Amino acid sequence: MDKVTAFFGRIQGLADDDDALDFTFGNPHELALPGLSDAMRAQVDPRSVDWFAYKSSERSAQEVVAAGLRDELGLAFEPEDIAMTQGAFGAISLAFALFADAGDEVVIPVPGWFCYEPMLRAANLIPVRAALDPVSFDLDIDAIARAITPRTSIVVVNSPANPTGRVYPRSAWEALAEVLEEASRTHGRRIWLLSDEPYRRIRFDGVDFASPAASYPWTVIDYSYGKVLLAPGQRLGYLALSPLIPTEARGELRDALFPLGLAIGWGFPDAVMQYSVPALETLSIDMAELARKRDRMYGALVDAGVEVTRPEGTFYLWGRAPGGDARSFCDALEARGVYVMPGALFDQPHHFRISLTATMDSIDRAIPHLVEVAAELNRDAPR
C-alpha cells in the first residue's frame, strides 16, 4: 500500500490545479449525471420516522438488483442472494470475511487492481499472484492452477479488467471452472471464485459479457454503481451469491450476510443511496462519448508508436511505456503538467494507465505532450 499512498500524496493537489491534465484515477471531470442528483433528491425527504434509521440491505434495493442480474446474466437470482454494500470495496471485504479464515491464501490477478493486496493483508489473508498473459493480458488458466495450494480459499477474477480493459469470454470461465473443481477435490476444501465486476456495464463495440457465475456454481459477484454512474464518492454496491450454489450452502451463506456485514464495520450503503437504487439501476455514463474518447487517445498513441492494449471495457487505456521505463515516462509528462498512472502500482514497472474520464478537451490538449515525450524516450532508448 506504500506505493499507492505515495502516489496519492503526489497528486493530491491536482483537483485545485486548473492547468493540470489529470488522467490518473477514474474520477469525474464534469458535473454529475442529472439523473443521479434527481434520484437522490427524490429520496431525501423522510416518509417515516425510521427513514434515516440504521439500514442493512433494503428489500426494495435487493429486489431491483436481483431483477437486473436476472436480465443481464440469465440466472435466477433472488433478493435474498443480494447483500447491499458500501461500493465494491464493501462487497469485496464481505466476500473475504465470508469465505476465508486468517492465514488462508487468495489468488489475485497481476496486473490487477492495486487494492486487492492491502485489503487481504489487513484481513490477515495472504495474497498469491497469478500473472495474466504478458502479451494479450488474457486470463492465464495455467498460472492460476499453479498458484493454488492447500491453503487457497478464494480466487479473484476481474472482467472487464482494470487496468487492461480486457473482457474474458465464457470459454475462459469454463476452463477455469474445471481447474477449480479439480483443485477443490485434490485439496479437500471448496475454492470460491470472487468475480469482481464493477465495470460490467462499461463495454465497447458490442462486446458480450459472460460472468463466471454461470460456469462455476461456487461464485459470488461484487459490483459498484460508482463506475457506471461515474460517482465513486457515492458508495453503493452489492455482493451477489450465484443462484447455482447448492440450496443448503446458499441458505447458510444468506444467513451469514447480515452478521458479517455488521462485523466488517457496518458495510451497508446509506439509506438514501439504497432508496435510490430503482432509479439508479437504469442510469449510465454516455458510452458513445466514452468510446470517442477511447478512440481519440488510443489512435493518437498507436500512431505515435506506443504499444497500447485496445480496451474492450472499463474507462482505461493500458500501454507499454516508450523507452521501457514507466517512471521516466510519467516524470517527463508531469514536467509538462500531464499526469498518468505508473504501472508500478500494478507491479508492472514498464507500463502505464490512462483514465478516459477526463474531458475531450483535456485529451486533445494532452495528446501533443504524450506524442512528443514518446518520441523523445524512444529516440533515447538503448538499441
Rank of each mutant, 00 (worst) to 15 (best):
T149S: 13
T149G: 07
P150Y: 14
P150N: 15
P150T: 10
P150F: 10
R151T: 15
R151K: 15
T152N: 10
T152L: 08
T152D: 08
S153K: 06
S153L: 05
I154P: 06
I154C: 04
V155F: 05
V156G: 02
V156L: 10
V156N: 13
V156W: 10
V157H: 04
V157N: 00
N158Y: 08
N158D: 04
N158E: 03
N158F: 03
N158T: 04
S159L: 00
S159P: 04
S159F: 02
S159A: 02
P160C: 06
A161E: 15
A161Q: 10
A161D: 01
N162H: 01
N162P: 01
N162T: 01
N162C: 08
N162K: 07
N162A: 09
N162W: 08
P163M: 09
P163T: 00
P163H: 02
P163I: 00
T164G: 01
T164E: 08
G165A: 02
G165P: 06
G165I: 05
R166G: 03
R166F: 01
R166H: 04
R166P: 00
V167A: 00
V167L: 00
Y168P: 03
Y168A: 06
Y168M: 03
Y168T: 05
P169W: 05
P169M: 02
P169E: 07
P169L: 06
P169G: 08
P169H: 08
R170L: 02
R170S: 05
R170Y: 10
R170N: 10
S171Q: 11
S171Y: 12
S171E: 11
S171C: 10
S171G: 08
A172K: 01
A172M: 02
W173D: 00
E174C: 13
A175P: 05
A175L: 02
A175G: 13
A175T: 03
A175H: 03
A175D: 01
A175Y: 02
L176K: 14
L176P: 10
L176A: 07
L176M: 09
A177C: 12
A177T: 11
A177W: 03
E178Q: 14
E178L: 11
E178I: 13
V179P: 06
V179Y: 07
V179Q: 06
V179A: 03
V179S: 02
L180Y: 10
L180G: 06
L180I: 12
L180F: 13
L180C: 12
E181F: 07
E181S: 13
E182P: 13
E182C: 14
E182F: 08
E182L: 13
A183G: 08
A183H: 12
A183P: 08
A183Y: 11
A183D: 07
A183S: 14
S184Y: 05
S184G: 11
R185L: 10
R185N: 14
T186P: 09
T186D: 11
T186Q: 11
T186E: 15
H187N: 09
H187D: 04
G188C: 13
G188R: 13
R189V: 05
R189D: 09
R189Y: 12
R189P: 09
R189S: 03
R189H: 10
R189C: 07
